[in-house]
Computed example of a mutant assay.
Amino acid sequence: MELRQLRYFVAIVDHGSLSRAALILHVAQPALTQQLRQLEEELGVQLLHRTAQGVLSTDAGKVFYEHAQAILKQVADARSAVAQSAERPSGSVTLGLPHSISGALALPLLTATRSQYPEITLQLTEELTGNLSEQLKSGRVNLAIQFDDGQLNQFATTPLAEEELHFICRADATYAKSEQSLTLQQALNTTLILPGLQHGVRPRIEAVAREAGLSLSNVIEINSIAILKSALLADMGATILPSAPVLDELQRGELRAQRIHSPSISRTVVLCASRNIPLTNAAAAITRLVRQISDGLCAEGKWPGATPI
């Protein structure tokens, strides 16, 4: 198996046809077809379905595509690490962000990177937290922001902030209390709109409720922040989230946030890197910059409910 075969395969999948991939790669289509055939013979599986409209990945092809992307990225990172200078880090860095964090961090981080490290290309990918660990382990992302649930020992971690979770509902909802806070029991007694069990705030809420002898009984599961906000505005229920993802709606008075007590709920936000894949100088520079931006947003009150660690 050769790196060029991986590049060819990824290009074919990305462009959806052998002819388009051949044009992009500047390779004759028969040669491209031959390399693909050799790759399939070596793996002993069919990677692509050929159709009149182009090509589609088989189940095996979808799995191999993810690995091929990760391998090609690590090769590019290795080349960049050898070539770049510690004083002027350059190259590409991919950072994975959970949906509920990107609203606070993404734009300030992109702006700071362009200003301080113009030779670094920062690629941000927004994902569910349950998917970020696998991408980090496989090398598809260099860094990922996650929430410390006691299961991150396999990664090198840099604590960033402690983020408080609030009870959030439509401003005129019948269960929107006039008080500024409510108990966790009161919050759990409402219909809650939350991510699935392996994503976002859900594991932390489940853990705190369990420790308090409480349980979640009526939950609507939605894994998209955009759809979750729409459900809140439609008064389908309330949620337990940090304020940052719904800050615009809170400021417009469409949603209302209340503090939770007895007990309160917070989560520890950390920056993770692989223990097995060395960081390039560029990735190390972005690690420092993420910490700097995080501290600044907390100090300026631009990351509501977050306290720097």
Rank of each mutant, 00 (worst) to 15 (best):
P278A: 04
A176H: 14
P195C: 01
Q146N: 09
P245D: 07
F147P: 03
A22C: 13
Q46S: 14
A76W: 02
G103V: 05
W303E: 02
T111S: 09
P203L: 08
L184K: 14
Q74K: 12
Q53G: 02
F147D: 06
F155K: 14
F9S: 03
I309H: 08
S100L: 01
Q292R: 06
Q84N: 11
E134I: 03
P89S: 10
V201D: 00
N189L: 13
I286V: 15
S262V: 02
H15E: 13
A173W: 14
G103R: 10
D14Q: 14
P203I: 00
L48S: 02
L165E: 04
I205Y: 00
S19G: 09
L192P: 06
E40K: 07
L136M: 15
W303L: 08
L232N: 07
E127A: 09
L97E: 08
N218I: 03
V93E: 14
A28M: 14
P30R: 08
L136E: 10
Q292V: 00
L23A: 13
A207S: 13
V269K: 01
L3E: 15
V10M: 09
S17D: 10
N218H: 14
K137H: 05
V201R: 03
S262R: 05
V246G: 02
L124M: 04
A284Q: 15
S266N: 11
P118N: 05
Q38T: 07
A212Q: 08
G296E: 06
T125E: 14
Q38H: 10
T58F: 07
E300M: 06
D14N: 12
I309R: 13
V290T: 07
L160G: 11
A104Q: 03
I12A: 02
H99S: 11
I220F: 05
R210Q: 13
S115V: 11
S57P: 15
V63Q: 13
T183C: 10
L47W: 01
T158H: 09
T191P: 05
I227F: 02
E66Y: 00
